[in-house]
């Protein structure tokens, strides 16, 4: 296990390096003069020249990248123009809010997705299966940003049960119950699509496994049907479900962009949208790198739990 972990960690290095190359390349591909693009067409020539120097844009690209990477490794992602503070500080602050939201959503979609998937597989072609399968398809098709608005209308405007936006109440908030109240709607909205995807995959993976010979063996042993379903079949199905949960982590992290905008959640997604409209390229760069890196790490976690579950993976 340890050697496998080390192997996986080493394999992570090129992926993370590739990530930085792609992010750097995208930013370097800004058409025309980057400084003008950043500052807009009304920028004075002096400002443009100063920015070019500040960004090191007068040097060759490879050198620029190496300098940028060196700074990155020291935790220096540059300084945000629009906010006038170090990018890393801002990104990390925002990212913690995103992690809370995405984590809650991922928890929700995993639990619900697995439950619905197993439930429908166990009752294949029954009426609960048909209804739930249809509901799941609705969940996959619904635009999350619109669903968020509907939920706000219902639960915040009409029923007044839950707050419509933000992470904490402005007055008198700040404790955990307050956070949870604010978290319910956005986390629920964010989890809907991923729940659908996981539920569908769980259903088909369970059906696939339930036809395997070792399920017949379990029944021939006299194992109870509950254990056949939840012990034998689910455990084997989980091996193919875990990577999908890993992929869903990416959808949830990305989808947070919409949800944070709808619910004004102070996360990194909303920060990115704002940074794009203010052309704060360094902030965009920093946000993308941190989120992408966390996604890579999450997938590593998924891989590791898969190999922990399936002894054949390491072999």
């Amino acid at each position: 296990m340890l050697s496998y972990l080390i192997k996986r960690l080493i394999a992570l290095v090129p992926v993370l390096l590739g990530l930085t190359v792609i992010v750097f390349a995208i930013m370097a591909l800004i058409p025309g003069d980057p400084a003008t693009a950043i500052l807009g067409s009304f920028a004075t020539p002096e400002n443009v020249e100063k920015l070019n120097r500040d960004l090191g844009l007068d040097k060759p690209q490879v050198q620029q990248y190496l300098i940028w990477l060196g700074n990155l490794l020291q935790g220096d992602l540059g300084r945000s123009y629009s906010l006038n503070r170090p990018v890393l500080d801002e990104v990390l602050e925002r990212f913690s809010a995103t992690l809370i939201l995405a984590g809650a959503a991922l928890l929700l979609c995993t639990i619900w997705g697995l439950l619905i998937g197993i439930w429908t597989a166990a009752r294949q072609y029954g009426w609960t299966d048909k209804i739930l399968t249809f509901v799941v398809l609705i969940g996959i098709s619904v635009p999350s940003f619109w669903l968020g608005l509907l939920l706000i209308l219902l639960f915040a405007v009409e029923l007044r049960w839950l707050p419509a936006s933000g992470m904490f109440a402005i007055y008198g908030g700040g404790d955990l119950p307050d956070l949870l109240r604010h978290l319910i709607l956005p986390a629920l909205t964010l989890s809907v699509v991923a729940t659908g995807v996981i539920a569908r995959l769980t259903r088909s993976a369970m059906l696939e496994v339930l036809r395997q010979d070792f399920i017949r063996t379990a029944r021939a042993k006299g194992v109870s049907e509950t254990r056949v379903l939840y012990g034998h079949a689910f455990k084997a199905a989980l091996v193919s479900i875990i990577p999908v949960i890993g992929v869903q982590a990416g959808f949830v992290l990305g989808g947070a962009v919409y949800i944070e905008t709808v619910f004004q959640w102070p996360g990194v997604g909303r920060m990115l949208v704002q940074a794009i409209s203010t052309r704060d390229i360094l902030l965009v760069q920093g946000g993308v790198i941190v989120v992408a890196a966390s996604y890579v790490l999450f997938n590593l976690l998924a891989d590791l739990s898969q190999s922990w579950l399936d002894p054949r993976v390491k072999a």
Partner: peptide, 13 residues
């Protein structure tokens, strides 16, 4: 390796 909405955002940026 990118969450792909993020990649789209970066490109739009």
């Amino acid at each position: 390796a990118f969450p792909y909405i993020l990649l789209a955002l970066a490109i739009v940026a």
